[in-house]
Design a protein around this nucleic acid. Structure first.
Lengths: 219, 219
DNA sequence: GTTCACTAAATTGTTGACAATCCCCTCGAG
DNA sequence: CTCGAGGGGATTGTCAACAATTTAGTGAAC
């Protein structure tokens, strides 16, 4: 392997390396159970082995890689059961964010969300999967942003990184938008109506249904 | 400083060192904002500086220490706002666990919880703070255990480590048991009655009230 | 008296070499 | 043919020395 140094010239710091490996794992460039040999990574990314070591340790804490004593690191493969658990935790956390968002949302932000609702409705009517999926993502992201909950946001992001593989397969499932669109609209309605309890419950129900789909995707 | 090696003879591995530092921070032996000089730690614990480095990186990901480029690591000081956020996330997660516990609890486990309820009532009547606080902790721990949610459990534990300092000061607050005891009893009742929604809501209300106390503890 | 440049100490970041461990493969005995 | 012992190669774990950076303190110029 050649040293395909992303940052030109300079040697790579441990944090940068961790970022690169993280995105590589999340994007699926590094597949589950793939071995991560320290020397190889050091050569490939042009970093010292010590830094590779630190980066792998950090990713191990984040749950993206698995390390075993004297046997090296590999990309962690999350089971269906784990993916369900992760989605349920996300349900609880995003419900919290929806609750806070309902408390804090401004008129401008509400108008923006309602516009997004229209856009998602259109996408479903047109059968535009791509656009709908995009709207889905911005909705979740926007609600987390409005909630202004740093701790919850960080935790959600970490968990999402572990389960992207499952989210991914789910988005393209036929008939899924018909189920999830009403849920999304209910969330938007509750948040815009400044109804924290309803917003939290709607979000929780939505993500629990996602968890159900994942649960039944592998018996 | 002398090398007060906890594990005798053998040199300390990075994971062991991380564990030691974690408990030291959580127990308050290392106070917030205290500098963590790599060489000093290496000498004190009898580990190599490389391992100290890895351990600090891991603890940094866990949110217990703060690292800045070229300026070293220090014990992270969590603000009141952060402690409130952390408690709110815990509220969401423990509510999830309470919900799952209500779904899964067996008759034996229910009997055990009800016995714990009696014990906590007695403790409050006797004015036995210590015993009540202990019951409180075992209640939360037991519910998490019964819920069998690995992901949620791990996340809760990580967050608890960051906020122990606040939990701690709160336990000894006068008049607190009078407020929290009914909440605890409500949780136990709902879980034992196999009522997931009520259990989740009771737990959420309980920890939100804890968050309120923390919020008002520093204006 | 204040400000700026400069030096020196302390500390982190980085590297390469060395030791320990594990896995796989071969080989021989039963 | 199966099983266990042993060796070789690959990989991780450990260490100590070196380079780079930051911080604090000193002194001279204005």
């Amino acid at each position: 392997m050649e040293t395909l140094d992303g940052a030109p010239g300079r040697t790579m710091t441990a944090a940068e390396l961790a970022d690169l490996l993280r995105t590589a794992i999340v994007n699926g460039e590094l597949v589950p159970n793939q071995r991560l040999v320290e020397a190889d990574l050091a050569a490939e990314y042009g970093a010292s082995r010590g830094n590779v070591r630190v980066a792998l340790s950090e990713l191990s804490v984040e749950g993206l890689v698995e390390r075993v004593q004297n046997r090296g690191a590999r990309v962690r493969a999350v089971s269906v059961d784990e993916a369900v658990e992760i989605t349920e935790v996300r349900a609880a956390l995003e419900a919290l964010c929806a609750r806070k968002a309902a408390e804090r949302i401004t008129a401008d932000q509400a108008a923006e969300l309602q516009q997004l609702a229209e856009s998602m409705k259109d996408a479903v009517e047109r059968g535009d999967r791509e656009s709908y999926s995009e709207g889905n993502q911005t909705l979740h992201a926007r609600l987390i942003e409005i909630s202004a909950q740093q701790t919850a946001a960080a935790t959600i992001q970490r968990l999402r990184g572990q389960a992207v593989r499952f989210q991914f397969r789910l988005a393209r499932q036929p008939g899924r938008p018909a189920v999830s669109l009403p849920q999304h609209l209910a969330i938007i309605d509750a948040v815009c109506a400044h109804d924290p309890d309803a917003a939290a419950e709607a979000m929780r129900v939505h993500l629990e249904s996602v968890a159900d789909v994942i649960r039944s995707s592998n018996p």
